[in-house]
Design a binder for these strands. Structure first.
Lengths: 218, 218
DNA sequence: ATTAATAATTAGACAAGACTAAAAAATTAT
DNA sequence: ATAATTTTTTAGTCTTGTCTAATTATTAAT
């Protein structure tokens, strides 16, 4: 149906797209996919011919309904496979990305339906990112970055913004897990670090860490 | 490391290779992969440059040690994924092939080790074909075709030679399963059909069916 | 409002893997 | 042994997706 390369471009546009922005720029896509702007320019022309993106020269791209559905389906597959790897095959959350990048291109409707069921119809992946449903719809959960919480506010840690190995391994080392209860005890004006109480432990985390943890307020 | 196309050629040569023959012919490979002899000729040159096959013009190809290991690893992955699809995801044995053809190219050592363990280290796939171990070694089980059994002989049905959808669905319809106890009651000289007793039922099967069922003698 | 800097596009080339058509080698038949 | 047939290889083309280098458009700076 569509090539892996086409799917990767659609996915990149999907991830870069922002309702508050115009279109996604050629250079942003090139940067995301670690490729050259000229290659992106070519591919966008192709996707546009196939009515998967709307394209205006020197403006930017947006996914069409059809393009968005395909992108969402690739993201759905990626995240379901991540759940599989962690829940069933003992992968850690920092190990799943590369394999899921491959598995997301496997084409089989039955496979994904059965996998979804086998995993118990998960709603989020191991990093807390929502799994699109079959129609490409995302369940939007109210969430903010921990860095936005004020002293005294509390919530549950439900996701990470950065999912780099380094960050995820840091969280493991500090024993910070999704689902943990977090309360902001104090904020340090000097270095913008935050004193938190997490799962009944007290710790101090840097500005950068707080800016990459998603919290569901209570 | 190696492209999907290269892996598919190596696998084809692996399956076509026969210790009692010289090399695998260009046209046999073309036929197996549903491609043209000229394409095969090109690819063989490439695989030969990479020391994955031994190649003599107008003679045939044989896998080198390295080529054989790669081919066996692809076959291993194919068959382990088939087990996964049937045992865990409710696929029937006639539905697994196309998906496994895709999954066999996923590259991740950890994935296959964990999957193997998750499945309980299976030794055969859903069609009774042996799963190569990590070093590419096959466990060889003594087996013959049902058509070779003489009147009065008996054994266990352990595999199919043809794994086309048509044949597998026929077996399902007749409720013939791997593991069933089979005894040859009589053989019809006229149409070469066979009267068998299978799992305590009596039935008559055609020459063609008997020529595609593997039996482990007892 | 020009100029400078940045971003996007085009033109042309290349590699992988496939194809067709034609030539060459090997095999089979007479 | 030579002719006929089959198989294999070569030569040249095509598509996909990439690249570099050069050009064109847009945005930012003075």
């Amino acid at each position: 149906m569509f090539s892996q390369s086409e799917e990767n471009y659609l996915k990149a546009i999907y991830h870069l797209g922002n309702p508050s922005q115009k279109g996604v720029s050629t250079s942003d896509i090139a940067n995301k996919l670690d490729t050259k702007a000229s290659s992106v320019s070519d591919m966008i022309k192709k996707l546009s011919d196939k009515k998967l993106v709307e394209y205006k020269k020197y403006y930017g791209v947006n996914l069409t309904k059809k393009g968005k559905l395909i992108a969402a389906s690739v993201v759905r597959k990626h995240r379901l496979w991540e759940v599989f790897l962690v829940d069933k095959l003992n992968f850690t959350w920092d190990e799943v990305h590369d394999v899921a990048e491959q598995l997301e291109h496997i084409k089989s409707k039955k496979l994904m339906e059965e996998l979804d069921s086998f995993l118990g119809f998960p709603k989020t992946d191991p990093h807390g990112d929502p799994i699109p449903d079959k129609d490409g719809n995302l369940q939007t959960i109210e969430k903010t970055l921990l860095s936005n919480l004020k002293k005294g506010e509390s919530g549950i840690c439900i996701g990470v913004k950065d999912s780099s190995s380094d960050f995820l391994q840091y969280l493991d080392k500090q024993n910070i897990k999704l689902g943990d209860q977090i309360k902001v005890m104090d904020k340090e004006a000097f270095d913008e670090s935050t004193h938190i109480q997490i799962a009944n432990r007290n710790m101090n985390i840097s500005k950068k860490i707080a800016a990459n943890l998603y919290i569901q307020l209570q």
